[in-house]
């Protein structure tokens, strides 16, 4: 089955709006929560299907226009069902000048005998920023289905000003690779990657050097400047949710860092507006509220990503029920 999802985010004044979007069954793209809560745009991709089936083809096109800011969320883990032919997902992203796009989907869980190819082609204009994540599980681990899938090939190409800056080519083929062995998953069950491509990449890297100074017990990670304008974090762990929460927290840090560098600080939503979302869990740390501000662009001086990281612990970003149940990744895994 062929599905297409198209999203256009355009900036009008200070606000990013959804324009000309389209989708077909089983997919749906809607605003994530109230659209009036923030100046940037938050969308969520939902699916009425239990997952990706044999023969499925999914085409996703995302255009983030000049100065637009988009956070695109997924609803749940992407489940790849048993297949004979395989399924394909093609994603094309274009981020124009000063645009900001964040996409950190839930983990991909390949069931036994699934075959999947995903190709992401991302074009960034001058001064555009990309925050892009992906997490690949070894399968339904608790059902004893680790590395029972046939083949999963994920290719991500990022171009900046039409020049290739980053190519992540990952093929996972349990029949042909010793996936539990050295060089591969090394007995972990999940891998995660976060890519930050931005004119502020070198500065973010310097902040990460200060923040990410020790390893966690549950996950192992590394980060590097993979090009003058790109930083990559890679991690391996044993829990999809934990990696997802950690990657989302890092992604949010990248988002806030970029906003800060662009000289923009978004108005925080009013307390009463955000409150219903947080009622799902009593344990969730209460977000730090600030009165809604509607002045001109503000430049917050002296704020470092380190401060942002501290704040992160207290501000779950657009919390889903899952996230709320798990509380916050850093709180769990930080020792």
């Amino acid at each position: 089955m062929l599905s297409t999802i198209r999203v256009n985010a355009e900036r009008e004044g200070k606000v990013t709006l959804l324009k000309e979007s389209s989708h077909n069954a089983p997919y749906k793209v809607i605003h994530y929560g109230s659209r009036h809560l923030h100046e940037h745009l938050e969308l969520i991709m939902m699916s009425a299907s239990p997952g990706i089936m044999d023969g499925d083809e999914i085409d996703i096109t995302v255009n983030v226009h000049e100065g637009a800011h988009l956070k695109f969320f997924t609803q749940s883990f992407s489940k790849l069902h048993p297949m004979e032919k395989g399924a394909v997902q093609r994603t094309k992203v274009q981020v124009k000048k000063d645009g900001l796009y964040k996409f950190i989907p839930h983990p991909v869980t390949p069931f036994a005998k699934s075959i999947f190819k995903t190709v992401n082609e991302i074009h960034l204009d001058e001064r555009a920023t990309l925050i892009w994540g992906d997490i690949i599980a070894s399968g339904r681990v608790h059902s004893g289905e680790s590395f029972q899938f046939t083949r999963l090939h994920s290719v991500t190409r990022v171009y900046s000003n039409k020049k290739l800056v980053l190519l992540d080519n990952q093929l996972i083929e349990p029949g042909h690779q010793p996936l539990n062995s050295i060089l591969f998953y090394e007995r972990y069950t999940h891998q995660a990657t976060l890519i930050y491509v931005s004119p502020f990449a070198a500065e973010l890297k310097a902040e990460l050097d200060e923040i990410l100074t020790s390893q966690y017990e549950e996950i192992t990670f590394g980060f590097t400047q993979c090009a003058p304008s790109a930083v990559m974090i890679r991690a391996m762990g044993n829990e999809g949710v934990m990696l997802y929460d950690w990657l989302s927290a890092m992604g949010q840090l990248c988002w806030e860092f970029t906003m800060h560098k662009q000289g923009l600080e978004e108005a925080e939503p009013e307390e009463e507006e955000k409150a219903p979302e947080l009622q799902a869990s009593e344990e969730t740390p209460v977000a730090k509220k600030q009165p809604k501000r509607t002045g001109p662009k503000r430049v917050k001086k002296g704020v470092t990503a380190k401060d942002q990281a501290k704040e992160l612990k207290a501000i779950p970003e657009a919390p889903t029920e899952e996230v709320l149940k798990e509380v916050f990744a850093e709180a769990v895994i930080e020792k």
């Binding site: 990952q170 050295i182 060089l183 591969f184 998953y185 090394e186 891998q191 192992t220 990670f221 590394g222 980060f223 590097t224 990559m232 890679r234 991690a235 391996m236």
Partner: peptide, 9 residues
């Protein structure tokens, strides 16, 4: 993946 993580570390 494992090798990349170790090289970054």
């Amino acid at each position: 993946i494992g090798q990349e993580v170790r090289c970054m570390q």
